[in-house]
Design a protein around this nucleic acid. Sequence first.
RNA 1: GCUGAAGUGGUGGAAUUGGUAGACACGUUGGACUUAAAAUCCAAUGAACAUUGCGUUCGUGCGGGUUCAAGUCCCGCCUUCAGUACCA
Length: 1018
Amino acid sequence: MKYHFNEIEAKWQKYWADNQTFKAENPVLSGVEGKSEKPKYYVLDMFPYPSGAGLHVGHPLGYIASDIYARYKRHKGFNVLHPQGYDSFGLPAEQYAIQTGQHPAITTEENIKTYRRQLDQIGFSFDWSREVRTSDPSYYKWTQWVFIQLFNSWYNNDSDKAENISTLISVFEKDGNTNVNAACDDNVKLFSAEAWNNFSSEQQQDILLQYRLTYLAETEVNWCPALGTVLANDEIVNGVSERGGHPVVRKKMTQWSMRISAYAERLLQGLETIDWPEPLKEIQRNWIGKSVGAQVEFNVIPKEQSDEESHKISVFTTRPDTIFGVSFMTLAPEHELVSKITTPEQKAEVEAYIEATAKRSERDRMADVKTISGAFTGAYAEHPFSKQPIPIWIGDYVLAGYGTGAVMSVPCGDQRDYDFAKHFNIPIPNIFEGVDISEEAFADKDNTIIANSGFLDGLNYKQAVKQAIYELEKLGQGKGKINYRLRDAVFSRQRYWGEPFPVYYVNGMPQMIDAKHLPITLPEVEKYLPTETGEPPLGNATHWAWCTKTNSVVSSSAVENKTVFPLELNTMPGWAGSSQYFNRYMDPHNEDEIFSQEAINYWQQVDLYIGGSEHATGHLLYSRFWQKFMYDLGLVPHDEFAKKLINQGMILGTSAFVRRVDGFNYEKGKYNSGEHFNKGAYNVKTNILISEGLASNQDYLKKLLIENKPDTESSIKSYDTITSNIDDYKISLRDGVHVKVKYVNASDELDINGLKNDEEYGKDYIDCIFLGENGEIIGGNNDVFKVRRDVEKMSKSKLNVVNPDDIVSDYGADSLRLYEMFLGPLEQYKPWNTAGITGVHSFLKKLWKLYFDDNGFKVTEDEPSKEALKTLHKTIKKVEEDIENFSFNTSVSTFMIAVNELTAQKCTSKKILEPLLILISPYAPHIAEELWSHLGHKESISTAPFPKFDESHLVESTKNYPISFNGKMRFTMELPLDLSKDDIETAVMAHEKTKEQLQGREPKKVIIVPGKIVNIVG
RNA sequence: GCUGAAGUGGUGGAAUUGGUAGACACGUUGGACUUAAAAUCCAAUGAACAUUGCGUUCGUGCGGGUUCAAGUCCCGCCUUCAGUACCA
């Protein structure tokens, strides 16, 4: 009987689905007193966004690893929760809708079907009965519900947790806000209880918004005109949008925000309590960006004595010890005080500068950090201690978004201040003892001794910081302060395909729709574009389905609503739905609660979370924030949602490139067959593609290009400057252009006929001339055309994706699973190379042959040999250790060794071959199930107990000692393990080869580590 | 620039507390089987020298150091990748 993997895999996938083999036991319904008797274990993957391109072989890597772990835990007797779902709101489906008019829900549904089919055929042990989709109203009902809870909460810095807004209101009613220590807007004004009680309802609501954990405020946002929406900081990469690479500009808009900054310190501290990869924690630490220092107030010297208005400039500094080194101040050009303090003489210059900086895009500013620019406002501030006047400048090296948007400039201690001072000829006073600052600033805190600084003289950094803050507090002009880089997260998107807000407006103030009306479902719209009046796409909606008779406030027509009580027209961002899904899986069908307390108290938190590190500052940070909030509400037992996290590395594609002699009416992927190449050696009609061998023969190539130089005017610049150095040519010749990897074999040879007949791009190549290594035109069947190969990220646009469907049909899911693990350590980036899969595939065939040969099933009841027991038990030990350490690649090697050994031993004993299947089952579950059933089992292998390791089978009586001379191993010697040191020495010294090595010399020293090594020093 | 991770054969990668470097595969070469191919099996495969065999020397990015012994520990560099960037 042969190993027919396709049939076997289909059979067992159907069996698992029919029998719901991997359904997690429900703690509420099973066992005694509402609990499963098994210990729980929760293994989670980051759920996918179902894109139209489907899966490539890089996507399942993490899923395979987590699946192996989940299956292993089932063998170990755990009640395993291993769910899967879809993060199904998002931009691509919406962009597609804009282009084609197809409803994103339909696109999403189709994509999910593809994903599900692809996932199913890999044989994952997901509990699909718990599937969630973020775009499903029964799911996003709870996303909206969390939003309402956030709106109804404020952050109490004294109790250090979120509390219901009603507690804040009662404080306001009794004492006003003067003694409130809360996370709030920087611009909150102080008021008394009396004032509060006299405020209008709108005024009160406005003030409360400055405290709520989600709030509506005019903020400077990242606006992406091409996408027509705002973006969060983590959605911008290198100054352009992460999706699509469109430019982003700063813009003031009224937006929903999340007061994540309230949790900055807890998000930072929490990192110490979780087992997450250190690099990822570091990214989060940097993003939170804690810096300890002081806030200092500088009084602006009034322009004229009669000037009644007095201004203060607050700055944040990490170096209050250098306060006597301040020789100027710098404000961000956008700073609100700039217009107020600028003198008439400087007005023109300052305004010109502001205009110039406003014009520069974020990207320009980032690209050009070297150029020093700024303008003097004409105003001066007073030094808090020396009382000397300090000129106030503006400069774009000071960012409006960080700290207070103003700095006290200490040129002797900060290189940027130093450069600015040099550039504008501002004095650079030295306040450091014994330090030369004629060339650059001195920023070494650890070796600082302060001088020329009055009461700070002679102090070191730490002492001076403390003293300076003390003196500032005495003056009432400063205090110690901790600043965080973490900004509140903008939470609205001007898009259609996202969660609607449960919000309507009364007199411009946002109101929550009562939770009993949730979900507020996404209304149908005619167009997915902004309305003519510039409102988000939801402004096109005419009917909202959520309205009920019980809520008389809002009627069922949005048109009507707009005149009476307008609805929120923005939708939530992509990360809204992914910030609570891990908890929802615990009780996904609960219609009354986000999850029951029974469920959360049983499942607790995610034990193992696997996903990519690219979510460090997005999903993973926001989820931690929401979890802490849920913890404050008393809804979850842990304030971290995932105990352990592993980042799987990316699987890279091996792209293929052909060198193209470029520039002939080439546009939009279509090659014109022009008349430019009527002359020359080949009577060339169109583009030339050059094989790798020729591309490296640069002199020949040059000659060839000159001979074929077109004589028409359309000849290309690069042809006029032909050199023998290929690097001088356009990218398309130097690096080549991508071709589909499926037309390139393992020897880097291109299948030209396949390429020309490709459905998508074949027509582009029909008229191309392919030149071989010696400049010959490639046409014959035996001709070889080589391409350049390079490792890159796997992506559709790079034409280097490998589809798991093809792998599964050619080699089977078990081969795919084993091979993905075999490639290398889970966390590591590694290139995919389909050719290597034959190794694991033939391993599976060898495994099969241990059970079946031409005469049929050959497993016997015979007692196993000693060697076979040894093989089995060392395999048990190693595999168990490997899985516990997430070292899946090495356990695949271990299986190979075991099967090779057992084959050599001609082992047929059931006592060996039965437990072996359980070891392999997490990795290659289909073949394991099939052979398991042939062993006579009626039940699935999935919960068979993991074999117990028995040390006694590994006990050896002898050791093959490596004998080293001066640390270099020369030969080995088989010796009994119970030999004493002296006996070992005697035996080794008596050996013929030892004498040969020593050549008569006396050894100086003999090191013997029993059971390990012998080293003779001569 | 700063922060983090990593550099081992032709390739992917192994190597407990320092203790036989290159496991396991891919690829390559030779052989068996076959009319042939595929599949399968066997052998060799770090480099150089030697080759009649025993072998010998060098080898884990580079330069030092600790040690009987270093891929592993310490110091100083180099390179690559990733994150981040005027953060006061």
